[in-house]
């Protein structure tokens, strides 16, 4: 069996949003995404046990999160929202994209100083953190995935790293890799931003008012 991880291409994009026809904020909003295009080891057939790939993706995720932070060129404390996604080439299935849920989410939480129980997280038994305590990266990492052709665009959702209900930070970033994924490839994606939509003004919970530290509010 060849190595499960066979990276073909790495694609990063960073957006600096200065305004959207309204008053410019004191600092531009930064939104970044990184996509790794790799061989889909399960393309072209039904494979019942795909969990080895989930494990193998863990170091890939950690490396991607670090590369994305470096591309955004901000301290990690500046990261306010995150999201993740996957685009599976035509010879694969949606479930191959779902392999990204644990390693992708874990990678950014690790980067941002999450102190939860990793084993519980992998097993899907909650974050293992104690409610009521301030912490980092307590919120679920929102995600989208699809099966698509080369150049397919994926809207990756973004929400606050500590409280999913911070309304002014609900957002999404479009990620599209020209020429990928080919049918036997899969693209795994991470995204992060530095905060509020550029002219956010529809009310709701503000990040400074997070009080429950339960990942939601």
């Amino acid at each position: 069996m060849p190595d499960l991880i066979d990276i073909r291409r790495v694609f990063t994009q960073v957006e600096e949003i200065r305004h959207e026809f309204g008053p410019p904020p004191p600092a531009p909003l930064l939104r970044g995404a990184i996509a790794v295009v790799m061989t889909n080891p399960y393309a072209g057939r039904y494979e019942a046990d795909i969990l080895p790939m989930m494990k193998a993706l863990e170091p890939v995720g950690v490396d991607m999160a670090e590369r994305l932070l470096a591309a955004m060129d901000v301290p990690r404390e500046a990261v306010a929202t995150y999201g993740k996604g996957a685009i599976v080439g035509a010879a694969g299935e949606l479930e191959h994209g779902a392999l990204w849920h644990v390693p992708g989410g874990y990678a950014m939480r690790e980067l941002l100083g999450w102190k939860g129980d990793r084993a519980a997280y992998v097993a899907g038994q909650g974050s293992g953190t104690t409610k009521g305590q301030p912490g980092n990266a307590l919120a679920i990492v929102p995600s989208t995935k699809k099966v698509g052709p080369p150049g397919a665009a994926l809207d990756v959702p973004l929400t606050n790293i500590n409280a999913s209900y911070v309304r002014g930070q609900f957002d999404a970033i479009e990620v599209r890799i020209p020429g990928a994924p080919a049918s036997d490839e899969v693209a795994y994606i991470l995204a992060m931003t530095t905060g509020y939509r550029v002219h956010a003004r529809v009310g709701g919970l503000r990040a400074e008012d997070i009080a429950q530290w339960d990942g939601l509010r």
Binding site: R9, E15, F21, A71
Partner: peptide, 24 residues
Amino acid sequence: DIRKIVVQVDETRQEQGQRIEPPT
């Protein structure tokens, strides 16, 4: 008047089964 700036980097490590070292 610049509304936004987008920067992207595309790094190819492998093409047609051949390793690209260093990547383009």
